[in-house]
Every structure is written in structure tokens, then in C-alpha cells.
């Protein structure tokens, strides 16, 4: 969801984000009731077909799966050992199909469209006193600051390497925590200065 979005004008790009999210949600639930590997395989093919419909090169598809390869492999091995081949195949097909479908949704939807769709979806929660635009706001803030936190972590790591400390997670976490907390203070200040305390809520 961070920088996956690829601008485009394909049918999938033009499809309302709400529709895409509902399809994703229903597929996510639905696939867990399917245990036939052929049906799952067919579904995976459909998803791959959708990728080409969105005009995303298929190389990109493999690139998205690569970081997950280890997890998928471990999961596969565990399934084979514990439950057998068929079950392993079913689990892996299901997971890969869903990951690819979810990635596709993010690739073809602009973040703020996605956030407005979630804001609309959350509007019934108003009954319980929740404010949907606040939920949306928290999501946006998260998207904004994850890359920044990663940047800070890289800075600390570089500084430590310069002083001869190679990977040490404790030595990374503590200064990162301090930095992030200080950043949070500054962000809160900036939000005040930019009028978050202004209207709408009151």
C-alpha cells in the first residue's frame, strides 16, 4: 500500500475502489471454503489474468512474491510434513492467489481513494460514537510515517556501522524508539499548527 500504486487507465484502474475491496474481502472469505486444488488453481489463473488486464508485466508478479518465498516455503514444508501433499498445495494456492489479488488491488487504486472508501465503509460505526474521518486520518498518517520511520532506522544503522557495530537489533531499537517518540512530539505540534484542532470535530 505504500508505494505500490502504478498509475494507469486500465479497466481495473477505473473500477471503483469500493468494488475492488469488496471483491477482495469476499474472495478472502470464500477461498477458505474451497478445498479443491483444481478450483483454487483455476482461481489463481483468473487472478494472473487480471494482472495482465491491469497491464502489469508478469515479471512484477514474481517480484512481489519473492520477499515471501521463504515464508511460503516454510509453510509448504510444514504442511507436507504434517498434513500431506494435497493440503500443502491447497494452502499455498489459496495464499498466493490472495496475496496476488490484494497486491493487484493496491497497485491499481490510489491511496486516497482507498482511504475514502474505507471511510465510507466505516460510517455505520458512527452509531458507536466513532468518527470515520478520524479512522481515515489515522490510516493516512500511518502511510505517511512508515517510510519515515524506516528512513530513521537506516540512518541509525549507518551511524552504527560507521562506528563498527554491525547488525544488533537492541542497539537499533532503543535509539529508534527515542527518535520516533521525539518525532511524535514534533508531529503533534505540526498538526496543531496546521489546524487539526480546527473545525469538523466540534
Amino acid at each position: 500500500m505504500l508505494s505500490l500504486y502504478r498509475p494507469g487507465t486500465s479497466a481495473l484502474h477505473r473500477l471503483p475502489v469500493g468494488v475492488k475491496l469488496v471483491v477482495l474481502l469476499l474472495s478472502g472469505i470464500g477461498l477458505f471454503f474451497v478445498t479443491n486444488p483444481f478450483v483454487l488453481g483455476g482461481f489463481l489463473l483468473v487472478v494472473v489474468g487480471l494482472w495482465s488486464l491491469a497491464r502489469v508485466p508478469l515479471v512484477e508478479l514474481l517480484r512481489q512474491l519473492r520477499p515471501l518465498a521463504l515464508v511460503l516455503a516454510l509453510l509448504g514444508v510444514a504442511q507436507v510434513l504434517l498434513l500431506g501433499w494435497v493440503s500443502a498445495l491447497v494452502v499455498l494456492l489459496r495464499l498466493i492467489a490472495l496475496i496476488l489479488l490484494a497486491t493487484l488491488v493496491t497497485m491499481t487504486s490510489r491511496t486516497d481513494d482507498m482511504i475514502s472508501a474505507l471511510e465510507r465503509a466505516a460510517s455505520p460505526l458512527r452509531v458507536f460514537g466513532l468518527r470515520p474521518h478520524r479512522i481515515a486520518f489515522v490510516l493516512s498518517l500511518t502511510l505517511r510515517f512508515i517510510p519515515l520511520i524506516k528512513e530513521k532506522a537506516d540512518e541509525i544503522r549507518t551511524a552504527q556501522r560507521a562506528r563498527g557495530v554491525e547488525r544488533s537489533s537492541l542497539a537499533l531499537l532503543l535509539p529508534l524508539l527515542v527518535k520516533v517518540l521525539r518525532m511524535a512530539d514534533h508531529i503533534a505540534e505540526a498538526l496543531d499548527a496546521r489546524g487539526l484542532d480546527d473545525a469538523r470535530d466540534r
Partner: peptide
């Protein structure tokens, strides 16, 4: 602010400009 990184609170450029306006 001195550090624009803490002042920019929305994920994209246009959204960040829209941020304060929306809250107005």
C-alpha cells in the same frame, strides 16, 4: 517548521496541501 518531514503529515503531495483545507 525546521524539518519539513515532521510537518508533512499526508502520504502524497496533493493530499498534504488538502489536509489543512479539509479541516477548515
Amino acid at each position: 517548521f525546521q524539518d519539513p518531514d515532521v510537518q508533512i503529515v499526508m502520504p502524497t503531495v496533493a493530499e498534504d496541501v488538502a489536509f489543512g483545507l479539509k479541516h477548515r
